[in-house]
Simulated scan of single mutants.
Amino acid sequence: MSSVPDNAPTHCPGTQSEDAGKASACAGCPNQNICASGVSAGPDPALAEIRRRLAGVRHRVLVLSGKGGVGKSTVTSLLARALAARSPDINVGILDADICGPSQPRVQGAAGEQVHRSGSGWSPVYVSDNLCVMSIGFLLASADDAVIWRGPKKNGMIKQFLSEVDWGDLDYLLIDTPPGTSDEHLSVVQYLLGAGGAGDAGDAAGGGATGALLVTTPQELSLLDVRKELAFCRKLRLRVLGVVENMAAFVCPKCEVVSSLFPAATGGAARMCAEGGARWLGALPLEPALARACDAGEDFLRDHPASATAAALAPIVDQIIAECEGPPS
């Protein structure tokens, strides 16, 4: 009888199967080569190190989107800034897991910074006293360098980010992922859940994953892919904290008239959440000033505290904190 790990993806053939490491379900799995070799190597030794590294991280939140261009990295940045601004005692970290398209260094105003390595591991780049960032963008010789890697090398980089970065004590670690449900997503979830113990999705003692935050835009084209993200989370037993609808309306910077650029023909994210059993956290507008702030690496919430985005973001952050701190709803 095949042995299937508790945190294995759906349709995993098991380590004792003849198809171990060769089946289509094995593609992108961090343990694919081990299973295919037929050698029982036991648990990945990196899992213990990941657990140790994340022992001081209270909440680990993955930010997911099914489609590119929905503003996932912008929402991650806004959420990190908002959490850090709540109190100087709240420590926040961002892990930029988008290996081929890292954007957090620029969005956080840290482009050109270098990562320092010491006996305790890689030190993330601090953009403020209680907000730090780690990204492959800090490891490239030039911002124009292309990362042309296959899945296994991406998985290895993500493993390094989780097992070799000195995250220290954090209240929130936000993991900014690329669009889709591919190698990077499987690696992050499996490493976190594997380090947290079988079936342990939110182990506060290290490892585990608190949950996922899904980002979408109102139009059906984006909602179709978000439904796939919901299915991805259910298959991997990853708790969904909620869904944020980004770019729900355009706020004119001159007349402040609100216009709908992406009509929600089918009811938008709110209706999708009602039908799919997910929590709708709220909607964020599209503001030109926010786009300029991201390009310039400026703190939009600090510079525009009375903006429509700041007003809409506050209750979303309240709900995310409540979901992370309280029992699963």
Rank of each mutant, 00 (worst) to 15 (best):
S135F: 01
P315K: 04
A8E: 11
L313D: 00
P88R: 01
T217C: 08
R60G: 11
I50H: 03
I321R: 05
V133C: 10
Q16V: 15
C324D: 07
P315S: 13
S37E: 09
A143N: 15
P45C: 02
S87C: 03
A25S: 13
T76V: 11
D225V: 04
S2F: 13
A41G: 14
G93V: 05
L286A: 07
R58G: 03
R53G: 03
S260F: 13
A25F: 11
M247G: 05
G196C: 09
A308Y: 12
T216W: 06
K235V: 05
G202R: 09
Y126R: 15
A212S: 04
R292M: 15
S2W: 11
A274N: 11
A314Q: 10
S135K: 13
C252A: 09
L54F: 05
M134P: 03
Q160C: 02
A111N: 07
G109I: 06
A41F: 06
A265I: 14
D98C: 11
S163L: 06
A48R: 11
R52Y: 04
L139M: 13
I158L: 10
E164K: 13
A198S: 14
N246H: 03
T309Y: 02
H304K: 04
P5R: 04
C132H: 03
E256V: 13
C132F: 07
G56T: 12
G56M: 11
D318L: 01
L78Q: 10
C26Q: 09
S259L: 12
M247R: 01
A291Y: 14
A231S: 12
P285Y: 00
A308S: 14
C324Q: 06
I316H: 02
H11W: 14
S17T: 02
G207T: 08
A25K: 04
W280V: 05
D144H: 05
G211W: 08
P45K: 12
C233D: 08
C294G: 05
A80H: 09
D19I: 01
D6P: 02
A270I: 13
L170Y: 08
G202P: 00
F250A: 07
A265Q: 15
A296P: 06
L79W: 05
S142G: 13
S37G: 02
E220D: 14
Q190C: 03
R52S: 15
V70I: 06
G168F: 07
L193K: 04
K228Q: 07
F232L: 08
P285N: 06
A322R: 02
L64V: 01
A274I: 07
A310G: 08
D169T: 15
T266G: 10
I94L: 08
P263S: 09
C273H: 04
H116A: 15
N7Y: 07
D144V: 12
E323Q: 10
A195H: 09
V115Q: 09
T216K: 08
C29N: 06
L286Y: 02
G71Q: 03
A55E: 13
A110V: 03
C294E: 12
P43M: 15
S24T: 15
D169L: 14
V115D: 02
G277A: 00
A311S: 12
W280F: 15
L192W: 10
H59A: 11
D19K: 08
A312S: 14
G69N: 00
R53M: 02
A41C: 10
G194A: 00
L192R: 05
L224V: 15
G202H: 14
H304S: 09
E164A: 12
D144R: 12
C233F: 09
A27H: 05
G68C: 00
V107Y: 12
C255W: 00
G21Q: 07
G119M: 08
L213W: 00
